[in-house]
Amino acid sequence: MFGRRGVELVKELDQSLDSIPPFNEELITEILEEMQRLYNENRIDVNTRPDDHETYLSIKVRHAVLKRDKRCILAYLYNRLRRIRQMRWEFGSILPPEITVSLSKPEVQWFDSYSKCLATYMKSIGDNHGLNLTSDLAPPKSLFIEVKCIADYGKFEFGDGESVQLKKNTYHLLPRSECEQLVRQDGCVLLSPRSLTVNCKRHCERKDQETKRESLSACRSL
């Protein structure tokens, strides 16, 4: 039946809203073939029987199917690109291999050039220092956050060269800017802002006590 395949294509996208289904090249080729066939039939009809009223009707029907097929294919491609763009912001500039296999070659190219575009833009803003737009999507409230590792990550290196061992079920107080990507992308770290404030307080109290003790011992030595 006319145009059935186009909807199949769109349905495929509709059924997997939070991921990207493998690029269905086979179906697209089939639709393109159907479109080519319809176009040829219309062309032949127009050339051979230009004044026939009935022929005009079949041309009209075929044209409607052509338009529909076109819409389905374009919608499929466009909505896929939107998802790929979304992924750039969430996965970062390198996509996991499970996703790359679902993309077509032009889509991979598009992703790369979008990545490049975004990187160039981010480099150009922020007073010559560049600004990473993909971090701090929500305004940060504190410089440090407490995180819990939920997987063995191994050595995690900070921008300043220091590093920390991230083992499963350990807690760390880390600079927010360093580990935001870790939380957002690897899913291996969890945080609880409430325990953070409590722990910060405790941390400060301990610091206070330490300074007190230090000053006391300093007094004694005098």
């Binding site: 991921s19 929500a138 940060p140 956050i145 927010r176 802002p193 409430r194």
Partner: peptide, 14 residues
């Protein structure tokens, strides 16, 4: 409260 970071839905589902 606000200011938390969460694993994004897309990645969590993935």
């Amino acid at each position: 409260g606000g200011g938390g970071i969460k694993t994004t839905e897309l990645i969590a589902n993935h």
